[in-house]
Amino acid sequence: MAMWLFLGSECLLFGGLISTYMLYRGRVTQGPRPSQVFDIPFTSVSSFVLLMSSLTMVLAVTSAQRKDNHRTKLWLMVTASLGATFVGGQVYEFTAFYNEGLGFTTNLFSSSFYTLTGFHGVHVTVGVIMLLSLRGIISKDKDTGDRPEVVELIGLYWHFVDIVWIIIFTLVYLIPA
């Protein structure tokens, strides 16, 4: 319950960041505009990776409910590596943008873009850390299938990060300013 409440609260956090971006994305007085830097095919792939990590998370949760420790650990690892791939892609993307002359302080678009996607990236990173720690904890467990609730809660967080990206991907990348 606390997790749902937290996620409800997070809706307002990301809502604020997205709104700021929407308001500012077209306001470019210097430096590149969004359409000049976005690499849609690349971002599509990383979006797909994140989406699929939601699937593997579901598989981890169902395995945990079946008390299948082995598969739970496996799917947690897969999810974590997909998440890490996504974060890696984001780091690559940021570097590429930066080399094209879009620094954090360049213009309103860049500040709000980096803040929004950066916040999302931090959430993914925290998620990856939680997944890895959870895997470690499950390995140490004496009994098998001991904590389906915990897997489920972290799953909820993970899916939430995914749905936020669903929105960011459409609003930020696909709809031109």
């Binding site: 307002l12 956090l13 604020g16 007085t29 302080t105 360049t106 213009n107 309103l108 803040t115 916040f119």
Partner: peptide, 27 residues
């Protein structure tokens, strides 16, 4: 969370040079 967003924007503006409230940039 809404004030969190506002404070984050202001902190980034003040500490890391972001442009959120820089009127010269069109903010």
């Amino acid at each position: 969370p809404v004030i969190t967003v506002a404070l984050v924007l202001l902190t980034f503006q003040r500490s890391f040079g972001a442009t959120f409230f820089d009127v010269a940039q069109g903010a």
